[in-house]
């Protein structure tokens, strides 16, 4: 177990290093550099700015400096907002993004799994067809369409919820719904097919042959095994919620990291783009690690094979 964890942490470090390197060189491949784009600066001012941010140094030195500052958890200053650090930008947006993201994950698990179970247990009867119809809608309709349409219907037309902001608790409804809609549908479809497959397994017949009660059979033998694939997608869920938050925070005017990121793109604030990307990647990797550990805990077969590999 310890060995496995160490191996995973090592992999994470390698991946993160690859991401930082890739991001750094991608951002420095932008023609012209950060101060060329809009206003024509006097050459001496541009030179002074370049010197201030270390942009006059050779690229490999800039790269080493950047790696160094990241190692001390400093993502550097913003190019567009003098005096503002990327760390403070992230710190300002994190609570909003974290709140909506966590609520969305809770919704995915708390709604997606039960709906899938209901569908599987009522295979080809109306609860199944209804759930699967809605889930197909949910998988097909892009999150920003769900967001805008629900914004129009529930906020503008019916006035049930505020159109933007999180000051009111009802303000959480639409962003969380739009963020989690796809994954609730996805997870319910996955749970359904996985449970149906599990129900056909021989060990389910064994469980019935033991005379176990239906509830025991379903929860102890059926669900535990059929939830394994669901756990695997929780990693991608987190990744998707992150990218989903770009548009959702934009549409509902939520001051989170996603909106900050889109704003940085529009502003061509390269250090901010770079910093937020790396921050996201790090968060994701931690999440994926947690999910993998959860998986190992759920499925005893993994322990041996992975640790041996």
């Amino acid at each position: 177990m310890i060995g496995y964890l160490a191996q995973r942490l090592g992999m994470m470090a390698v991946t993160l290093f690859a991401i930082i390197t890739l991001t750094f060189f991608l951002m420095h491949a932008v023609p012209g550099g950060p101060f060329v784009s809009e206003r024509m600066l006097a050459p001496e001012i541009a030179a002074a700015l370049n010197a201030k941010y270390g942009l006059d140094l050779p690229i490999w030195q800039q790269y080493l400096n950047y790696l160094g500052s990241i190692a001390s958890f400093d993502l550097g200053p913003s190019f567009k907002y003098p005096g503002v650090s990327i760390n403070s930008m992230i710190a300002a947006g994190l609570p909003v993004t974290l709140q909506t993201g966590l609520l969305a994950i809770i919704c995915v698990v708390a709604l997606g799994v039960p709906l899938g179970v209901i569908a599987a247990l009522n295979r080809n009867r109306w609860p199944d067809t209804t759930v699967m119809f809605i889930a197909t809608l949910g998988v097909a309709i892009p999150s920003y369409v769900i967001a805008t349409v629900s914004l129009y219907v529930f906020a503008l037309r019916l006035g049930w919820v505020p159109t933007f902001g999180l000051d009111d608790w009802r303000g959480y409804f639409l962003p969380v719904f739009a963020l989690s809609g796809f994954w609730i549908s996805f997870v319910s479809r996955l749970t359904r097919s996985s449970l149906l497959e599990t129900l056909e397994q021989d060990y389910m017949t064994t469980a019935r042959a033991k005379g176990l009660k239906p509830g025991q059979i379903l929860f102890k033998h059926g669900l535990r095994n059929s939830l394994l694939p669901v756990v695997t997608v929780l990693g991608p869920v987190v990744a998707n919620l992150v990218t989903g938050s770009f548009v959702i925070e934009q549409i509902f005017a939520l001051p989170g990291i996603g909106r900050q990121f889109v704003l940085s793109i529009t502003n061509r604030d390269y250090t901010a783009i770079m910093g937020i990307t790396i921050f996201y990647a790090a968060i994701l990797m931690v999440m994926i690690l947690i999910v993998d550990l959860l998986y190992v805990w759920l499925d005893p077969r993994i322990k041996l094979t992975k640790a041996a590999a």
Binding site: Y203, H221, R224, D299, P300
Partner: peptide, 16 residues
């Protein structure tokens, strides 16, 4: 009591 053909698949892999 019942015993099945394939002991590989008749036992639940995730329980002791």
């Amino acid at each position: 009591g019942v015993i099945f053909q394939d002991p590989m698949t008749s036992l639940n892999p995730t329980l002791t």
